[in-house]
């Protein structure tokens, strides 16, 4: 709700937290039927709509995984992957992640069918990577526990391995970052890692992918993982939505025109959608160009030129964002800003929150408030300014992150070192 001066948002505390039961959105709500598109329901892995994950991570655990993903993304921009311990110590409290894991933790998943007859699998979708893979029988080396039955290629009539000599095999490196291998039977072997030991290795294969009952993709190239480790929770694998040619976006270019969209729900107890093809929906769209962030091709780079708090542009020199560069990533939970930008955001936001009592820091979030005495609060609006004049206002749930009503924090974190 916008308060009279339109530079502040009225946020109801209850709206920041998931409810016990799931509120599904009507899948047709945003579909414009006349155009070719395919819409999948998006659920948050750790909410009541989810796949019944064993246990949700605490905020601190989530932020540790989130920081590891951010470190890994930064390492790609710094030219080489550094061992985790050489990266700067993060503010996130160190919780030993079990078997590796930085697929990140803010996982949004969709249900797709694979093979003939189709078998349903819950896959994480990730704009920060390109390869789609799932765990496959016989799990020659290792499969982590997943909710859905592990995909069995032997039971599908449309499955085939890609041979080492196939051009599809040669193109793997740009999408996974690793040279493909070759098995004794001349089958193409892929390997992908997501940072700090989480990875998937297996056969690069072709299969029929069913997005919805009416949208079936034949000869879809994906990874059939025989050795998979990481805290992917109960998800069966991952859908890569990056810009490499092995991404589902490029593989379905003819059908969907290289357009996809998603909406991530306010809380983990409601659902969103992932749509392939040009879908209508949510009002007029404001566009900004995709740029190549610092020459790392597969990420979706954006040109942020500034930010506004409470309707006023905050003092950040334009060079701050042009030096750091910026990407948008569905797999990173908390937005990371260059240090100067974060400190300007923090001080402007604090000025607009003086009436509320402070609360202790929450891991990487250092600007927190005790709002347990309020049913609703009035907070300064926060907006991103992109080159070309596009200005995007954030929802209240995009400005505040609540671990509990007595610890509600500004949902941004500063990078440590401007060059990252």
């Amino acid at each position: 709700k916008i308060s009279p001066d339109s530079h502040h948002l009225t946020v109801e505390l209850a709206g920041l937290f998931p409810s016990a039961s799931c509120t599904r959105r009507s899948p047709q709500a945003h579909i414009s039927s006349q155009r070719e598109q395919s819409s999948l329901e998006v659920i948050h892995r750790h909410g009541p709509c989810g796949v019944g994950d064993s246990k949700s991570p605490t905020a601190a655990e989530m932020f540790v995984q989130d920081q590891a993903r951010v470190d890994f993304i930064n390492s790609k921009f710094s030219g080489k992957f550094k061992a985790m311990d050489s990266l700067r110590p993060s503010k996130a409290t160190k919780i030993p992640a079990k078997s590796g894991a930085t697929i990140g933790s803010g996982n949004y998943i969709v249900n797709v069918g694979l093979g003939t007859p189709k078998k349903y699998l819950s896959l994480i979708f990730d704009t920060g990577s390109d390869l789609t893979w799932t765990q496959c029988e016989p799990c020659a080396r290792y499969c982590y526990d997943q909710k859905d039955p592990v995909f069995a290629p032997s039971q599908s009539t449309t499955y085939s391995n890609i041979t080492c000599s196939s051009p599809d095999c040669a193109q793997l490196e740009s999408g996974t970052g690793n040279q493909p291998g070759c098995s004794a039977a001349k089958s193409c072997i892929y390997g992908i890692q997501y940072g700090d030991q989480s990875f998937s290795v297996g056969y690069f294969a072709k299969e029929t992918l069913t997005l919805t009952s009416t949208d079936v993709i034949d000869n879809f190239l994906f990874g059939c993982g025989q050795n998979n480790r990481g805290l992917f929770g109960s998800a069966a694998g991952l859908i890569g939505l990056g810009q490499d040619k092995i991404s589902i976006v490029k593989q379905t270019a003819q059908k969907y025109g290289q357009i996809f969209s998603y909406c991530l729900p306010k809380t983990s107890s409601s659902t969103g959608y992932l749509t392939f093809g040009s879908g209508g929906g949510g009002g007029a769209l404001k566009y900004t160009p995709i740029i190549e962030a610092h020459g790392v091709a597969n990420f979706y780079g954006l040109n942020i030129v500034g930010m506004k708090v409470g309707g006023t542009q905050i003092p950040i020199s334009p060079s701050v964002f042009s030096t750091s560069g910026a990407i948008i990533d569905s797999g990173t939970v908390i937005t990371r800003l260059p240090p100067d930008a974060y400190s300007a955001l923090k001080s402007a936001f604090q000025k607009g929150m003086v009436r509320y009592p402070k609360a202790p820091e929450l891991s990487i979030l250092d600007t927190c408030y005790d709002l347990s005495k309020y049913a609703a609060v009035s907070i300064p609006k926060v907006s991103f300014l992109f080159k070309g004049g596009t200005e995007i206002d954030l929802d209240g749930t995009g400005i505040l992150y609540g671990a509990s009503t007595d610890q509600v924090c500004l949902a941004f974190a500063g990078n440590r070192d401007p060059s990252t």
């Binding site: 270019a253 969209s261 306010k266 900004t288 908390i334 937005t335 596009t390 949902a411």
Partner: peptide
Amino acid sequence: IAIIGNVQQKTLQVVYDVGGGKIGFGYNGC
């Protein structure tokens, strides 16, 4: 690198028009 995370994207309809080289944002997407 600055990274716009998924918390900040909540309720926005985020349209990746990769062929068109642009990203669109719409309010009240969900």
